[in-house]
Design a protein around this nucleic acid. Structure first.
Lengths: 116, 116
DNA sequence: CTGTATCCGAGATGATACTG
DNA sequence: CAGTATCATCTCGGATACAG
């Protein structure tokens, strides 16, 4: 029946969200994606400053995770000393609408919190 | 200069995202919101089934967190035995576009993964 | 500058049993 | 049915020092 179809649809959608969050878990990943989403190209030390409170160890680990999942691309630049540039892959860029929505919501949320 | 303004804008956006994720942290919160987003009204035991692998303890805790942050509303129904209904608040409903984007992305992501 | 290595504690999460 | 209580585990994540 139609109810059954609705159930399956919901279940599938919820699983999709869960799959997405599997890749984006952790305290910092989404913020990192956000940084690359807005700056487009960004260096290790720059991202370190973008995210208030993250340690270099965590940033290193999270970047590695994101790279493994093909969300970001890592490029070593031929400078002295070496610098490394990160950017979203075409695939990672598909998260832009998510980031923008979250930005809007987060900004509103901040107002709510401060308002109290 | 304009560059300065751009910087501030980026920083602000990244902070907004981080604020949003502060409320939505944890392995399950976004999936719970997704469940309520698609089902609109949902009972404790139903959500338990929606999210594959969550324990009742975690669900209880996450629901409490979400309620404290005014994202969901908890209603005790006068049935025998008692049943409890959860739903998004008007405020929580503002996350719908985030959820929908994540659903789309997650579905695509799943295809990518399975494709390998 | 961009990481890695190590140590450590706190909190997140899970399994199971239990209560109103 | 909707949780709580308890215990065990495991991962996250910070601090610090070090390396190429």
């Amino acid at each position: 029946m139609a109810d059954d179809k609705f159930q399956k649809e919901c279940k599938k959608n919820i699983m999709a969200v869960h799959d997405a969050m599997d890749v984006l878990n952790g305290k910092w990943k989404i913020s990192i994606v956000a940084s690359l989403c807005y700056y487009h190209k960004r260096r290790f030390s720059e991202i370190l400053k973008d995210l208030n409170g993250i340690s270099n160890k965590m940033l290193s680990k999270e970047l590695k995770d994101l790279e493994i999942n093909k969300l970001i691309r890592r490029t070593v630049l031929d400078t002295h000393p070496i610098t490394v540039q990160y950017e979203l892959t075409e695939y990672g860029q598909k998260l832009q609408s998510v980031i923008r929505d979250l930005t809007d919501w987060g900004a509103e949320h901040r107002k709510e919190i401060i308002g109290k």
